[in-house]
Design a protein around this nucleic acid. Sequence first.
DNA 1: TTCCAGGGGTAGA
DNA 2: TCTACCCATGGA
Length: 308
Amino acid sequence: MKLGDHMNTSRFIIQTPAKFNFWLTVYSHGWCSLPPFRVDKENKRFSQLLQLGDGALAYCTLVDGSSSLSVEVQSAKRLTPKQQSEVKFKIKQCLRMEEDLDEFYTEAKRYSHYRWIPKIGAGRLLRAPTVFEDVVKMMCTTNCSWALTEIMIKNLTTLIGEKFGDDASAFPTPEALAGVSEKFVRKNIRAGYRSPYLIEFAERVASGKLDLESWRTSTLPTVELFKEVRSVKGIGEYAAGNLLRLLGRYDYLALDSWVRGKYFELHKNGRRVSDRTIEKHYADFGKWRGLFFWLEMTKYWYEQQFPF
DNA sequence: TTCCAGGGGTAGA
DNA sequence: TCTACCCATGGA
């Protein structure tokens, strides 16, 4: 069965906040190329397959409007008002629509080399519908090429996630991932030494011992939240720093081989310097330093997409 | 074949 | 806190 065949389709509009740039958010980092997200560049559509709280699957296709998004949802059964409201909520969460960046933009305007950020409305970083999905994906970015990350995430969705039509699969639930063997994860997901970490993490979430989703609304000081995120086996400093950015905390630079290389290229003519030197460079930017850093490292990308 | 990717855990000092 | 060593996988 192909998408669209024998399925219910509903359509609605989501009003976007001021200074919201849809495609900048979609392309804010690598997440948009990992399933169940999907980008259709040619037709300028961004899709995601959501699994709702009651287990129902909703394949959402988003099209950018001037001050709104038009959303088309395909589902096996007609969406109830409650389900439609959940779909809207999740889309807004993924695109960070509720996040107030006014303070960040005010700060950015103080620096001539960062004024492009508020000008084009950059700064919202795409995230998954659940913290669980963000953590699993982040674990699969560690110590491997991006190509291998894509392989692992594709395998996770197609082999453990619930299928929707012929060519879409949801991201696996904690229960589903906790329910497969380490041998399966090594052999079929190709997660290697990460396999026991992934299963242990999924078990903790599925059993309720780890209340992940509360991280998004946590009032803990960032240092404390960082410690909690770091307590997950398989999540080190790089992964935790990046996850914190997806939780709306920007105090960490989350250094990895890619951003280090970019920093050397942009600031040191390709010469390598220590992590401490990089951290010192951004120390004065306080709680926003992780966001300034990431946007500066990816500015060339925005320039290609959105000349300014 | 070796090296390195959007590193992290652990033991030992 | 720091260092050394080990850990799978795929692509160059």
